[in-house]
Computed example of a mutant assay.
Amino acid sequence: MNGKLKLNGIPSTPSVFDSLPPIGLGELRQMDISLSRLDCLFLAKIADQAERYHDVVAQLKDIISDNNAQLTIDERNLLSIAYKNLTANLRASWRTIDALQKKEALSSTRQQVKLMRVQKDLIEKDLDKVCRDIVDLLEKYLIPAASDGEEKVFYAKMRGDYYRYLAELTRLNSREELGKRSLEAYKSAYRHALATLPPTHPTRLGLALNFAVYFHDIMRSPERACHLAKHAFDEAVMAASADSNATFANLEDALMILQLMRDDLILWHGEISKVRFAD
C-alpha cells in the first residue's frame, strides 16, 4: 500500500502515534506526568467498575500516602469495597475446597486428599496476605488519622472484620491470638459507636451485626451473638419509634442491616433451641 492507509477510499498518511504501544500508569509516573487526587479517584472508580480490585487499592494507597491518610467518604467506601471483594472471592474459594474435602473424604485417594490440601493452603496464603495488608494500612495510617465519630468506628470495625477472617481460617496456635485482636477491635469500635453514633446509624448497626457474627463464628456462642444483635436491633427500633419525625441516616442501608440482623437472630435462635432440645 506504499505506506498509505485508506479511510473511506481516501489514501491517508499513517500517524506516528499509530505504531506506539499503550502507556501504563507506572510509565506515566516515571515520565513525571503527575496524577491529581481526582485523577487517582477516577482511576479507582474505573478499576472498581472493571472489577480490578487490586488496582483500586493501588490508587487509594497513593491517595493515602499523599494526603496524610485522610480519605473522603467516597474514597473510604471504595477502599472497603475493594478489600471486601478481594477477600470474599478467596473465602468462597476456601469454603468450596473445604466442602469438597469433607464430601470426598472417604472416596478420595491419599494423593487426591493431599492435592486438595495443597490448593486450600494456596488460598489461605493469598487470603492471609490480603487481610494483613489492610490491617497494616488501618493500624499504621487510617485509624491514627481518623476523626472521632463515624470515621473511627468505620475503620475500627474493618480492623475487627479482617482479624476475624484471619482467625476463621488458621488452624495454628495463632487462631486464639487473632481472635483476641478481632475482639479488641470490635470492643473499641463498639464503645466509640455507643458514645458517638445514634442507634439507627448504618455504621453502628453494621458493626453490631459483624460483632455478633464474631461471637457466633469465632467464639461459638450463639447466645452471646443473639444478645448483642437483639440489643442493637431493639435500640434502633425504639429510637425510630420514639420520634415519629426521625429519619435514618442512609435509610435504605439501615433497613437492610436490620433485616440481615433479624434473619441471623432467627437462625441463631434455632441453633440454641436445637441444642437445648438435644440436652
Rank of each mutant, 00 (worst) to 15 (best):
P11A: 15
P11L: 11
S12E: 12
T13S: 14
P14E: 12
P14S: 12
S15P: 05
S15E: 10
V16I: 15
F17N: 08
F17Y: 13
S19H: 11
S19K: 14
L20P: 07
L20A: 15
P21Y: 10
P21E: 13
P22A: 14
I23K: 13
I23G: 07
G24E: 14
L25N: 12
G26P: 03
E27P: 02
E27S: 14
E27Q: 15
L28Q: 14
L28F: 10
R29Y: 01
Q30T: 06
M31I: 05
M31H: 05
M31C: 04
S34P: 02
L35H: 06
R37F: 06
R37M: 05
L38F: 02
D39R: 07
L41D: 02
L41N: 04
L41S: 08
F42R: 09
A44W: 04
K45A: 06
I46M: 11
A47S: 15
D48T: 12
Q49I: 06
A50H: 13
A50F: 11
E51Q: 13
E51N: 12
Y53D: 09
D55E: 15
V56I: 09
V56N: 03
V56S: 03
V57H: 02
V57P: 02
A58H: 05
Q59P: 00
Q59G: 01
L60A: 04
K61C: 05
D62E: 10
I63E: 00
I63C: 00
S65R: 06
D66S: 07
N68W: 00
A69Y: 00
A69G: 00
Q70C: 00
L71D: 01
D74R: 02
D74Q: 07
E75N: 04
E75P: 01
N77D: 10
L78K: 04
L78Y: 02
S80N: 09
S80T: 04
I81R: 06
I81A: 03
I81T: 04
A82H: 06
Y83P: 01
Y83R: 03
Y83F: 13
N85S: 08
N85W: 01
L86W: 03
L86M: 14
T87C: 11
T87M: 03
T87S: 12
A88V: 09
N89M: 11
N89S: 14
L90T: 04
A92L: 11
A92R: 13
A92T: 15
S93E: 13
W94M: 08
W94D: 09
R95H: 10
R95W: 05
R95V: 08
I97Y: 09
I97S: 09
D98H: 12
L100V: 04
L100A: 12
Q101T: 06
Q101M: 14
Q101I: 12
Q101R: 14
K102I: 09
K103A: 14
E104P: 00
E104N: 14
A105E: 14
A105C: 05
A105I: 06
L106H: 11
S108H: 07
S108L: 09
T109P: 07
R110I: 11
